[in-house]
């Protein structure tokens, strides 16, 4: 077993549920299973390197490893947007299935090894909320001209509806919403949105999170560093991250129901987008995806693979499970 001692800068604070506290959990488990030989120390956003520069620091070899949501990398690696979160794409369990059994891992390595980075999926979580707004969004025309915060490829889709999209960091969103600098924002899971206090400054919460059916975070390891580890060490890290995926799914799923109820109790109007709105979003998504697939070869390849799997899975997904709203259907 190698002695591994890495600092792991994160792009989210360790206080944020599932989003930020998965990696600290993984680090604790690694210390436990390796009897302290694999010692990862997480660093809060900005404490070591800027929160949104983790990937390039790992790539350049300034740091051995780091932890981030992959969508932040799409300015550099367009396909990263898909591995981070794909609008109308794969849900957490489906994403794991694609990664492990449908060539996802190979495509991930093919995308990132040229940048000298080895990413390990280490925390996939439930859908995000689709947006907090100060006003009602009855039709997609209501989105026109609004100032909205969104990250990744979702941002480009929102821009299709005439929204002006910025990428503010999480800590500034509350104030921006409060002061009207933003008309709306998406950020993360309902529990995380609650931690950031959006319900105090925006009256309308929209679901479902079509733009991000799963949110996938990775432990980025510098490829040279990774290649320098022995098989046992690599296996321990990979297995613990896989456990981290199970932990993150469990933790993310466990907490969202109660918090949605509590939003309603605190006066938030929790709304779901109508079928027409969803259809419009889907149409815009297809246009944006086609455009990006044309622009970047790897993006096209990864997207095609994901969509192929989604199509293959469809008969099982639609017939093998009870419909998500079976309780409401029976009650009616």
């Amino acid at each position: 077993l190698d002695r591994v001692r890495w600092q792991i800068p994160m792009s989210f604070a360790s206080t944020l549920t599932a989003l930020g506290d998965t990696m600290p959990w993984v680090a604790d488990q690694l210390r436990a299973v390796s009897d302290g030989a694999i010692d990862l120390r997480v660093a809060e956003p900005g404490a070591l390197v800027p929160a949104l520069s983790i990937f390039e620091n790992v790539a350049d070899g300034n740091i051995d490893a780091g932890y981030s949501w992959m969508g932040y990398e799409w300015g550099t690696v367009p396909a990263a947007a898909l591995f981070g979160a794909t609008p109308f794409g794969l849900e957490s369990v489906e994403f794991l299935a694609w990664m492990t059994h449908h060539g996802g891992q190979e495509l991930l390595e093919e995308t990132f090894h040229p940048y000298n980075v080895h990413p390990i999926l280490c925390g996939t979580i439930s859908p995000e909320t689709a947006g907090w707004f100060r006003q009602e969004m009855n039709t997609v025309e209501d989105l026109q001209g609004l100032r909205f915060r969104a990250a990744g490829v979702g941002g480009e889709i929102f821009a299709e509806f005439g929204m002006s999209v910025t990428l503010l960091p999480g800590g500034e969103l509350y104030q921006a919403l409060e002061t009207g600098t933003l008309d709306g924002t998406e950020f993360s899971l309902p529990t995380v949105d609650e931690q950031l206090g959006f319900y105090q400054v925006a009256d309308y919460l929209y679901l479902p999170g079509w733009h991000q059916p799963s949110t996938n975070q990775y432990l980025y390891v510098n490829l040279d560093v990774w290649n320098g580890l022995n098989d046992q060490t690599r296996a321990i890290i990979e297995m613990t991250c896989m456990a981290g995926n199970a932990y993150a799914i469990a933790r993310a799923e466990a907490l969202q129901g109660a918090v949605i109820t509590s939003f309603e109790e605190r006066g938030t109007n929790v709304r779901t987008y109508s079928d027409e709105q969803i259809a419009a979003f889907y149409e815009a998504t297809q246009a944006v995806m086609a455009r990006n697939s044309e622009r970047d070869e790897m993006f096209g390849k990864v997207y095609a693979s994901m969509m192929e799997f989604q199509a293959e899975l469809r008969p099982w997904k639609e017939q093998g499970y009870l419909p998500r709203d079976w309780q409401s259907r029976i009650e009616d």
């Binding site: 949104l52 990398e73 550099t76 990744g152 941002g155």
Partner: peptide, 23 residues
């Protein structure tokens, strides 16, 4: 210098839609 070079080689741009290219 390599920090700037790496950005050039990656073709890095702003990650906001409508943001500036040539970072």
């Amino acid at each position: 210098i390599p920090f700037t070079e790496a950005s050039f080689n990656r073709g890095e741009r702003s990650s906001a839609p409508g943001g500036l290219a040539n970072r």
